[in-house]
């Protein structure tokens, strides 16, 4: 079992996750750094302390996180079975035709893969071509994973499909405390599904309203956030989403590669900065810091610059 840095190590000793406060953590990463370990660290912390978590991903399927979690000693499968974790897969079936109810007739017309708009490669390297699930009505009720399908050519009406996340949150939050929420890959909705950035921002706002701590993972490569007068609407939309979320966030955790090049015992740089959300009256302060991190089979270690990590 490997070791992961705890959220207290990352965000500062005095920072606390408040059960009723709609906090927002924004995790940004660049190509070449994987923010998954930060996700595992947060998931581990929440699930161990018995909190309910809704995890939605538009970039990876559950198998990716199950394997990754296993490497870090986090058994997501058992939490999924227990019901403390709800996984919403917005990746596998995002552009497949909408199935009205799980018990209805199986999908008849599956569009050829070449016609689909999706096909975003997952971060964890190539995966074997997916078996598009043919009719498996007996297995469907037992499958605890919820899927989001917008249909082959998403229309604004298809946005209602995203209410699955909302329902999942409401279902878990009945017992007084609100569940936590982790969302990965909201940029896919803008880039691939053609959803307006304002609709995505509204969605985040509504979801934050009914969850305790929301963690959002987005890429922040310079080409995506540095805009100019000649930027395309897609670039503008992405930058708009990332920066507007950063304006309301409690903490911004950004991962990037080492400025000086590749090193064999450093994976990248983690920078934690305080957002405007942390300036309010709630107690606990986000400690800003810049640390190096190293991801290996033995876990992830974060250490100060110059301390060599030993």
């Amino acid at each position: 079992m490997s070791k992961l840095p705890t959220p207290a190590e990352i965000l500062g000793q005095s920072f606390r996750f408040l059960p009723q406060e709609s906090q927002l953590l924004l995790i940004t990463s660049v190509l070449g750094t994987s923010p998954s370990w930060l996700t595992y660290s947060l998931l581990h912390n929440s699930l161990i302390s018995g909190e309910n978590v809704v995890f939605a991903s538009f970039l990876n399927e559950f198998a990716y996180f199950r394997e990754g979690g296993k490497r870090h000693g986090l058994d997501l499968q058992s939490h999924l079975r227990k019901g403390t974790l709800t996984f919403i897969d917005g990746f596998s079936k995002l552009f497949l035709p909408v199935v009205s109810t799980p018990a209805s007739a199986p999908v008849q017309s599956i569009p050829a893969p070449s016609q689909r708009v999706g096909g975003i490669p997952p971060r964890g390297g190539p995966i074997p071509p997916r078996q598009i699930p043919q009719s498996a009505p007996t297995a469907a009720p037992a499958d605890p994973i919820k899927y989001i399908s917008l249909g082959p050519s998403p229309s604004p009406v298809a946005l209602r499909q995203l209410d699955v996340i909302k329902t999942a949150l409401q279902g878990l939050g009945s017992s007084g405390t609100r569940p936590k929420l982790v969302v990965e890959g909201l940029d896919v909705l803008i880039a691939a599904a053609g959803i307006d950035v304002r609709a995505v921002e509204d969605l985040v706002y509504d979801l934050r309203d009914i969850s305790s701590t929301t963690t959002i993972l987005l890429p922040s490569d310079s080409v995506l956030i540095q805009t100019s007068a000649s930027s395309t609407p897609l670039e503008l939309s992405h930058a708009n989403l990332v920066i507007s979320l950063a304006h309301t966030a409690d903490a911004i955790l950004s991962l990037r590669l080492l400025d000086t090049g590749v090193a064999k015992d450093i994976s990248g740089v983690l920078k934690v900065t305080r957002g405007a959300g942390n300036l309010g009256d709630t107690d606990g302060i986000v400690e800003e810091k810049e640390m190096l991190y190293y991801e290996s089979d033995a876990g992830v270690r974060i250490f100060a610059r110059g301390s060599g990590g030993h």
Partner: peptide
Amino acid sequence: VEGSLTSLGSN
């Protein structure tokens, strides 16, 4: 800085 949104010292 590539991929950096905010600097240390913000807020």
